[in-house]
Nucleic acid binder design. Structure first.
Lengths: 204, 204
DNA sequence: TTATAGTTTAACCATTTGGTTAACAAAGAT
DNA sequence: ATCTTTGTTAACCAAATGGTTAAACTATAA
């Protein structure tokens, strides 16, 4: 354990340790003892602050979602053009995930394991809504700015292109035969590559 | 019934059950007893045929990879144009994954959990190579058929657009507020939607 | 038929794991 | 100071889990 962490109060220290372990190993792979060790405290203290493994996990999960969701809202709820949105969104999202590379995989994986989990986050204040984005796409199509495309499909395209390279990191790294540094560079390039690719396809 | 038939019977029955459980719950979440129940046999028989959980899992994993890898080779090693390749590949891959929806997530997830796993599949006979695809992209760019694009990035684009909607199924289903039938339709539409989107971006 | 080798099972076992308890320490509150 | 609440720990526990064993069953070759 690092000394600078010793000052932090126990609860946030547990959350921090739990985040690391859960995001790397998932709910089933994580061990309470391992989290306690990472936090530098006794295992019983985990249960003192968070009654059970399940509750500790849920705390970490909603915490992680609270980081990701506002990122999504950026593209959906500002007033710039679709082109601007795509550009800023891909750049910002890829930059953000570079700093939190385990986040998308963690959320997606645990949502697959337990889909009812979505009900928990549906109530989240910054839960994204697609309505504005969809109507804006339609409007720009009518104005002749964009070629015809379904807003929902476009949304899926964008998120897929942004997140998949992180989720499939080991797979793609293997296929492309890149080492960590090379793959990092490849992703770095995608900050602009992806939006250019999208814009080229949808802009008139 | 001949001895070898019987072996294959029990063995493949175990593999089938293990596939179902492992793909739904992952290595850590799966229980040997549950696999035995699903296969309708005694738990000890699992260890008789596959010495340990780890070995059973590896059998399932390489099996799964053997299904997915040839799909990738289709786009990389035939002689059609890039446009044809993109069209056929997305259509075929999405059609294929619709029949095996757990497959991509399973492979990607377990590869994240244990990246050294890639060494096992690197030896696989149908392990995909990108060389042909990359040179073909460059050639078609020089011929003026395609706009300039990096072949590796294009490859990532394609796979991302194809696979992400399956991997992030619960997340996207939630964001888009679709039920299972509606989401299935959305994916069905992507069989052509994705390739059109790509072609529009790269073709001159 | 019987010996043999392969297959299947119930009962067990050792370890791991999430969770509890009871004692103890720190810090306010009176 | 002394009482009370809150925080922390070592030791413990019951259940679950991967794995083993020895016996029973089955098919077949001699």
């Amino acid at each position: 354990m690092r000394k600078s962490d010793k000052n932090k109060d126990a609860e946030s220290q547990i959350l921090d340790a739990a985040k690391n372990i859960f995001q790397k190993k998932g709910m089933d792979g994580a061990r309470m003892q391992e989290i306690a060790d990472e936090a530098g405290i006794n295992k019983a203290l985990l249960h003192y602050y968070f009654r059970s493994k399940k509750l500790l996990f849920e705390a970490v999960f909603t915490n992680a979602f609270s980081l990701l969701a506002p990122q999504l809202n950026k593209i959906l709820n500002d007033d710039s053009s679709i082109e601007e949105k795509v550009k800023n969104f891909t750049f910002n999202q890829i930059s953000f995930i570079i700093k939190h590379p385990y986040l998308p995989n963690f959320i997606i994986q645990e949502l697959n394991r337990n889909p009812e989990f979505f009900d928990t986050i549906k109530e989240h204040p910054s839960f994204p809504s697609l309505e504005k984005f969809k109507t804006q796409v339609q409007k720009e199509i009518q104005q002749g700015i964009l070629k015809p495309i379904d807003g929902e499909q476009l949304f899926i395209h964008i998120v897929s292109l942004n997140l998949f390279p992180f989720i499939a990191n080991p797979l793609l790294k293997g296929f492309l035969q890149k080492d960590d540094a090379q793959y990092k560079q490849l992703i770095e390039n995608r900050k602009t590559e992806v939006s250019e690719f999208i814009i080229r396809s949808i802009k008139n």
